[in-house]
Design a protein around this nucleic acid. Structure first.
Length: 414
DNA sequence: GGTGTACCCGCT
DNA sequence: GCGGGTACAC
C-alpha cells in the first residue's frame, strides 16, 4: 500500500488536542501509534468505510492523509479524495466552532473552569457517527475506557472485514502490516447468534443489548445490504439530528441497554445536542465537590432520575449553550488517565481533583426550581433544556417500559 | 413513581 | 467490592 505524503492544516492545539480528544472516552476506535518525532509523538488512525484517515499534530499544524480503497487512479482523483478527507476532518472535529471563544466564555462564567482551562486546552466534542456512538456507549455501562476500547475493537474485527492493511508509521522502518476494519453496519450485528459470540468475547450482559439494539434497528428500518455505503438504519439515526433534544432522546431510550446516561452521550457526541450534559457518578462527584450540588462527596448515592436531572440542569445553568462541551473539559480533567496531561512545565494548572472546593460552595439550593420561568418564547438554552427535562420526567417508567416492549414485540413478531 | 438488585468482567 | 448503568420487579 502506498504512503502518500501528509497534507497540512494550520490549527493550534488550543483549538484541538488530539492527545486529549481521541483518548478521553468519546470515540473508542482510534489507533494511537508511537512516533519518534518529538513534535508529534503519535500518529492517530481511524478506519472509515473507504479510507483510513491518519493524523499527526504539532503545536500549530494538523497533518493529515488518507489511504483509500479503491486507490485513486490518478493524482487528480487523489486530490479530490484528499479534499473529501479534509471536509470530513472539519466536520468530525467541528472545526467551525471556535474553542478559544468558548473557553473564555466558560471562564468568565465559572471560576472552577478558569482554574483548569490552561492545562486542558483543545478539548472539544467530536461529531461521531450515531450508530457507532450508540453501540460504543451501550458498551460503556459499568465499564472503563480501556475495556470499552477492547470491546469496540472486537466488534470491528469480528463483524466487519478489513478494508486494507498498513505498516506502522515508524519513520523509515518497515513493520508488519496491520489490518484496519471499519465499524460494522447494523445488519452484521442483528443475528441472534451474535449475542452468544459477544458473550464469549467478554462483553458480559452488554452482548444481548448490542444484538437486540442492532436487530431493532434493522427490523424497524430494513437492511439494504446492497453495495450502498450506509444502511437505512444508519441513515435513520442520522435524521435524529433534525429532531429536538427531547424527541431524539425519546427515540434513543427505546433501544435495549440505553438509559438516560447512554442516550445523553449519543445526543451530545453524535446528534449535535451540544447543551446536553451526560451525568454519571463521576460527573455527580464533580458537581457535589465544585458546584454545591446536594450529596455527600463520599457516599455514592444511586443515580435516580431526579438526581440526574438536578445535576444536569445545574451544570447547564452554569455553562449555558455549549454546556455539554464544557462538561467534557471538566470530565477529562478529572480522568485519572490524564493526571499528568499537560504538565510540560509551561503550565501550572492543577487537575480538577487537586482544586479545593470553593469555601462558599453555593449554599445547597433549598430546592431545585423547575423551569417555571419561561423566558422569551423558550429561547434561552437553559429554558430549552429545562423543558426537555420536564418532559422526560413526565415520561413514567411504566410508559418507557411499555414503549420498549412494543418495539421488542414488533421485532420478535417478524 | 421511587427504590432495590442482578448483571459480566477486570481492576484496586 | 466496586465501577463511566440498565432492566426488571416491587
Amino acid at each position: 500500500m502506498s504512503s502518500p505524503a501528509f497534507r497540512s492544516l494550520p490549527l493550534s492545539t488550543t483549538q484541538l488536542s488530539l492527545a486529549a480528544v481521541l483518548r478521553c472516552g468519546q470515540s473508542f476506535r482510534w489507533s494511537v501509534l508511537p512516533l519518534s518525532d518529538q513534535h508529534s509523538p503519535h500518529e492517530y488512525r481511524l478506519c472509515l468505510r473507504d479510507r483510513v484517515v491518519c493524523l499527526r499534530q504539532t503545536s500549530d499544524t494538523l497533518l493529515y492523509r488518507s489511504v483509500y480503497l479503491p486507490q485513486p487512479s490518478s493524482p487528480k482523483e487523489e486530490a479530490v479524495k484528499d479534499a473529501e478527507t479534509l471536509a470530513w476532518i472539519r466536520d468530525y472535529f467541528q472545526l467551525d466552532v471556535d474553542l478559544m471563544e468558548l473557553y473564555s466564555q466558560w471562564s468568565s462564567m465559572d471560576p472552577v473552569f478558569e482554574k483548569v482551562k490552561d492545562r486542558f486546552e483543545g478539548i472539544r466534542i467530536l461529531r461521531q457517527d450515531p450508530f457507532e456512538c450508540l453501540l460504543s456507549f451501550i458498551c460503556s455501562s459499568n465499564n472503563n475506557i480501556s475495556r470499552i476500547t477492547k470491546m469496540v475493537q472486537s466488534l470491528c474485527t469480528q463483524y466487519s472485514p478489513p478494508l486494507l492493511s498498513l505498516p506502522p508509521p515508524k519513520d523509515g522502518t518497515e513493520g508488519p502490516l496491520v489490518p484496519y476494519h471499519p465499524f460494522p453496519p447494523p445488519s452484521a450485528l442483528a443475528a441472534p447468534e451474535v449475542a452468544a459470540k459477544l458473550r464469549s468475547l467478554g462483553f458480559g450482559y452488554r452482548a444481548d443489548f448490542i444484538q437486540k439494539t442492532a436487530k431493532m434497528l434493522v427490523d424497524a428500518h430494513g437492511n439494504d445490504t446492497s453495495t450502498s455505503m450506509q444502511e437505512p438504519a444508519e441513515k435513520w439515526l442520522l435524521t435524529l439530528r433534525q429532531l429536538s433534544t427531547s424527541d431524539a432522546r425519546t427515540e434513543l431510550l427505546k433501544f435495549m441497554g440505553v438509559g438516560r446516561k447512554v442516550a445523553d452521550c449519543v445526543l451530545l457526541m453524535s446528534l449535535d445536542k451540544r447543551e446536553v450534559v451526560p451525568v454519571d457518578t463521576h460527573v455527580h462527584q464533580i458537581a457535589v465537590k465544585h458546584y454545591g450540588l446536594p450529596g455527600s462527596s463520599k457516599s455514592k448515592a444511586t443515580m435516580t432520575p431526579k438526581l440526574y436531572d438536578d445535576v444536569s440542569m445545574k451544570l447547564v445553568e452554569k455553562w449555558g449553550d455549549y454546556a455539554g462541551w464544557a462538561h467534557s473539559v471538566l470530565f477529562t480533567s478529572d480522568l485519572k488517565a490524564f493526571a499528568n496531561y499537560g504538565l510540560d512545565g509551561s503550565s501550572s494548572s492543577p487537575s480538577l481533583s487537586k482544586i479545593a472546593m470553593p469555601s462558599s460552595a453555593s449554599p445547597s439550593p433549598t430546592k431545585r426550581k423547575r423551569a417555571t420561568t419561561k423566558a422569551v418564547e423558550g429561547n434561552t438554552v437553559t429554558d430549552a433544556v429545562a423543558s426537555t427535562v420536564e418532559e422526560f420526567d413526565e415520561l413514567s417508567l411504566a410508559e418507557r417500559v411499555k414503549r420498549r416492549r412494543q418495539v421488542c414485540l414488533k421485532v420478535s413478531a417478524k
